[in-house]
Amino acid sequence: MATLKINGESKVFEATEDTPLLWVLRDVLGLTGTKFGCGIAQCGACTVHVDGKPVRSCLLPVGGIGDRAITTIEGIGATPAGASVQKAWLDLEVIQCGYCQSGQIMAAAALLAATPHPDDADIDAAMAGNICRCGTYVRIRDAIKRAAAARAA
């Protein structure tokens, strides 16, 4: 038995230590909002926060997480940055198929929490690890700026 702190709750589960967090979240705990896209840290669909930092959960073994706090897309709306990103995403109608967007929103929320007024270079650096096959990049950029402005207001 192992325990992880996920979205403020203690979750007990069974899985070997080498199991990536992604599969514990999705298949063991049923938190399917975090997505599988590539399994090799190339697409960002599996992004979660560990102590507020964006991490690719497909390559993060659960055995090494300890008591650090995990936040997933199901919990990100409870953070101020997460809520502002979600709102901006809907206001600007960023989303198409949506499959990449859990990861996009997690990456954007981490960016805004660390850098309240990101410029284009900050956005490039923080978001280039997240592929969107539907090509929503133009709106992602605009929505991050909008979320930043809304938080400043």
Binding site: L31, T32, G33, I73, E74, G77, I95, Q101, S102, I105
Partner: peptide, 15 residues
């Protein structure tokens, strides 16, 4: 279809 796509609620086939 988008509101449930910002909070992980949407269920794709894979979910």
């Amino acid at each position: 279809d988008t509101p449930d796509k910002v909070n992980g609620k949407v269920v794709y086939g894979i979910d």
